[in-house]
Amino acid sequence: MPTALEITKLTKRYPTGVDALKGVSLSIEDGEFFGLLGPNGAGKSTLIHCATGLAQPTSGTIEIFGNDAIHHYREARAAVGLAPQELNLDWFLTVEESLDYHGGYFGMPKRERRERVAELLDTFSLTDKRDDRTRTLSGGMKRRLILARAMLHRPRLLILDEPTAGVDVELRLELWHYVQRVNAEGTTILLTTHYLEEAEQLCNQIAFINDGEIVAQGTSAELADRYGTASLEDAYLTLVGRKELSRAHIADAGEAEGTT
């Protein structure tokens, strides 16, 4: 069984001269729930864009279920569902059209699209909104639609780029339950997030990316161990050189102040 996503020595230099990725190698096994953590500008979105054809790598290789994502992009892209960070919905389309057209772009026959769209509208509580233009949806509704769209063509690899940024607690928990179930059913998931508890809760493998390089990879416990810290958050803060922000550190300082 080939790995879901195999990235080797991937570099990306933007025309501005910025090196967003500096030789990233990454392997995500089929069925894994993989978390990619890192500060803003670390290269998370660039990596995702390279894997989905939205950015063109400068060098290196990307294979998705054994298919070269650059030269055999049809097979590779057909296997991937992308829920991007930006709410990139088409203003001219309704909720239902957004899903239907996405299915069309992925070559799904009409009847299959109709059934799958109805199923996902129901799953994401969007049935009442099916004829609304996407522009009129609330932020939370847009986020649901983005996820439904990513799932529509039944991808084997689901890429979620900060799916819970700016959503309320209820929706965040709903999304967590949903993606966990999808993963349990066999879909491989690559998740980027700023919320460390999200990664801890959901992911069985986590990689830290910083300044265009993967600097550590393992389970949450392994990473905490490696950095000699009590939690994933502290490991992360150590990585980005901001140990002084550790909650344990702040609590200790508070207690120390209280005793004087």
Partner: peptide, 17 residues
Amino acid sequence: KPEIGDPPHDGQARGAT
């Protein structure tokens, strides 16, 4: 509802071949 993901694990993905 169950079976929402239901990925096609029958080898080839859709849309290509």
